[in-house]
Amino acid sequence: MVESMGRHVLSVRDLAVEFGGDRGTLRALDGVSLDLHAGRVLGVVGESGCGKSVTARAILGILDRAGKVTGGQVLLDPGTSSQQDLVALDPNSQTMRGVRGGRIGLIFQEPMTALSVHYTVGNQIVEAIRAHRELSKADARNRAIELLGEVGIPRPESRVDAYPFQLSGGLRQRVGIAMALAADPQILIADEPTTALDVTTQAQVLALLRRLQRDKGIALMLITHDMGVIAQMADDVAVMYLGRIAEFSPVRDLFARPRHPYTRALLRSVPSIRAEPRDRLATIGGTVPHPGARPSGCAFHPRCPEVIAGRCDQSAPRPVPPLEAGAACFLNEGAA
């Protein structure tokens, strides 16, 4: 990688996840490798159903009951003496619970439904604090007020006793961020944190995330389908398609020299300010295939404008090697 990097805090290797259902098993993740570094933002981008959220949940060991990690590793503190493979841990074990929230915080997509309406925000944050810190209730409450102030909520000392339904969407998402930060995790996973918010609020929440991430040197994994958010926030980008990494590269390269035809297609479908009136927005032909009906060879080949007949539909391209920029595409292999 070109730029110097912070400490390597999380390393996902060849992660595979399957969902068992009534109609057979679905492979939701098929050999995903990702790396998180302190102080850097990894953007994970892709269409719905590509496995972004599943990756986040698999890392934290909170997949739905039907989901199962069938292979790969999730290494916390890789290469150090305290290295730990989270996949090998029992999801309900004390150690794994300490990792959840304590080492890795999760920020949610839907600030409406991700908080329980039955408890005050203070109660829900205090719970997150006390799950990882030996603090008295009063101390934890003070810490919760401090956190609410830190995420830019006005009058935190009275808002701590508010119920989520008394707050606006933007404030709720800030509460979600405060909750994820409750135990000072070094890693944050934000799963579409701004999708449910209006544009102004979205910008504010992203700015807040960026500031907190820089100040605290957090390794942030930002999941989104919005290339605009990626451009604004990410240092490195992983483009996912049907449970695999299609391309991994530093953010500048991704926009300047996209390597994978899928990345190029995604970038073309971003509305541009330079477009002429009444120009049609480019779309990617076809739809994302159902994971149960994964196309042979390269999974993108039926929708790919640059498909090589007799090659892309026959065999799968090599996956992107970890920690290297590249694309899983024959065009790219030929060039290399």
Partner: peptide, 13 residues
């Protein structure tokens, strides 16, 4: 519901 996932992600039992 998503709030259950939130609670799990906090690391409580």
């Amino acid at each position: 519901r998503p709030y259950v996932v939130t609670a799990r992600a906090k690391g409580i039992s």
